[in-house]
């Protein structure tokens, strides 16, 4: 296998990190909804934490995407 094709495969594999981000974001919003439906009074005060959790979760997956881009374009 030459270097160019190995790079393509490696970039594809690095994007698997986004699987975890998808599971995590689904978990964040799912847990928020189940909590918010049980106690709607407390829901509005937790939107900040919701977006913080979403943002942190997404960032870990995006690191994988960045590695894929680094592999492809260096």
């Amino acid at each position: 296998m030459d270097l160019a094709s190995a790079k393509q495969i490696g970039a594809g594999l690095a994007c698997v990190a986004l699987v975890g981000a998808g599971i995590g974001i689904g978990n964040v919003f799912g847990s928020y909804l189940s909590g918010a439906l049980r106690n709607p009074g407390a829901a509005a005060s937790q939107t900040t934490n919701l977006f913080l959790g979403f943002a942190l979760c997404e960032a870990t997956g995006l690191f994988g995407l960045v590695i894929a881009l680094i592999i492809l374009f260096t």
């Binding site: 960032a59 995006l62 690191f63 995407l65 960045v66």
Partner: peptide, 13 residues
């Protein structure tokens, strides 16, 4: 890093 990459990667993707 996470702050900048999040915005950049979302827009790019």
């Amino acid at each position: 890093i996470s702050l900048s990459v999040r915005l950049f990667a979302n827009m790019l993707a």
